[in-house]
Design a protein around this nucleic acid. Structure first.
Lengths: 223, 223
DNA sequence: ACAAATACGATAGTATTACTATTATATTTG
DNA sequence: CAAATATAATAGTAATACTATCGTATTTGT
């Protein structure tokens, strides 16, 4: 899988960036270290100035790639979901409807354990960022405008893929879209609870969000 | 009826505020209009200076009630969940386990349609704020510290109540806590999708998040 | 190889934010 | 009526989230 990925470029909606960070080594360093810095100090405290200092570059140079830190978060989010989508397509290929959905849940709910190192992006850390910060990419007053601009297409496509698998397995189920979006958003939430509010989840070292959602979905669709 | 009486006067953890906003008319005006202003411009653009101007008071006076806008959000969130808990206890009283859980789901998932006007707080608008901003109250780097300080006790108590109802109905179900927290967080998310990402949810004018979660839970626990 | 285009770094500047501190005045209470 | 308390007004600070300009380095096309 790693070798396949090395020939593929994760495609992110163009309007998100001013200049494609994949097109230069500075751009790659910006993305690479923004992930590490956001993970370390949190998105709220993260600034382009701090990032500039960290990578020995200038604040103004970073603005030539991303017009704001919010756009950078949208970029990271899109990249993450594109990467998940890639795994989703490959790993669910050629399975029967039931196994396909079960495998899909596994792909979207599992926590990333290994940095595939086919790129400058550390997927383990990026996964942590998504758990802590992903909601902030759409919980804004500009969400409708940004949605129109296409900034959330990849995220939505994942939900559609899951929804279609639900429909394929159980055509008369009434809430395939809501079930799909609940799994995606809910599993990030369960991972968060696991780290910060252990009393509100059953997930721990032994039980994973994947198991919870696999069980939930199979019971919901069996009857 | 355990904590019903103690919640009649909506009780918020004391450490959240510097001075109890319920103790003065200025305090009440701060809370009342912060809700309206956050709803209008969003929490990210909300500042104490703007609120001061709006209520014809001074920024510095607001700081005597809340030490930061984040603490104010924690206050609003606690107030909201305390108010939900109040309804939860009353409306689920004396029902059998199945009806009790179904009613509980209704209470936590329904959108507020009427301002009960028993206070200066507009519950309809507060409900909208929770849909858009509630996650921001815990998705921070300070979450563990603030959790220790007890800022999330009411929110957690709601999850525990739901969890206990799940256990009462189906003692051998493996994931009662995760199911409970999924309902609470997930229903706010479904409401958000309904307003901004209609293609990712089945909820609309006819179908409510309540229906989706009632169906989900009864199917999950029946088998 | 050379000019032109582009990228980057350095510096400066702006309006706003998220506060803290001080003092003066108004209001409540004992 | 005095003392205590609450509020308002003003000022100030460091940081944020940018924009603008300019000079130099690097890349590129011919």
């Amino acid at each position: 899988m790693d070798s396949l990925l090395s020939n593929l470029k994760i495609a992110v909606p163009e309007k998100i960036y001013v200049k494609d960070p994949e097109s230069s080594s500075l751009g790659k360093r910006i993305v690479e270290h923004s992930i590490l810095l956001i993970d370390e100090i949190g998105f709220d405290s993260f600034t382009f100035k701090k990032l500039g200092t960290l990578i020995g570059s200038n604040e103004s140079s970073i603005y030539r790639y991303f017009e704001s830190k919010h756009k950078l978060l949208l970029y990271l989010s899109s990249w993450y979901w594109a990467w998940i989508e890639y795994q989703l397509v490959i790993e669910t290929h050629n399975l029967n409807p039931f196994d396909k959905l079960q495998k899909a849940i596994e792909v979207v709910c599992r926590s990333t354990k290994e940095d595939s190192s086919f790129s400058h992006i550390n997927e383990v850390v990026l996964n942590r960022i998504m758990i802590n910060e992903n909601s902030k990419s759409f919980l804004t007053k500009e969400v409708d405008l940004e949605n129109k601009e296409g900034y959330f297409v990849i995220y939505k496509r994942i939900v559609y893929r899951l929804r279609d698998m639900v429909i394929a397995l159980k055509p008369n189920y009434k809430y395939p879209s809501s079930l799909a979006s609940t799994i995606i958003d809910g599993s990030l939430h369960q991972h968060f609870l696991k780290s910060h509010f252990t009393s509100m989840t059953d997930c721990d070292l032994d039980i994973t969000p994947t198991q919870f959602y696999k069980d939930l979905v199979s019971k919901t669709l069996q009857s």
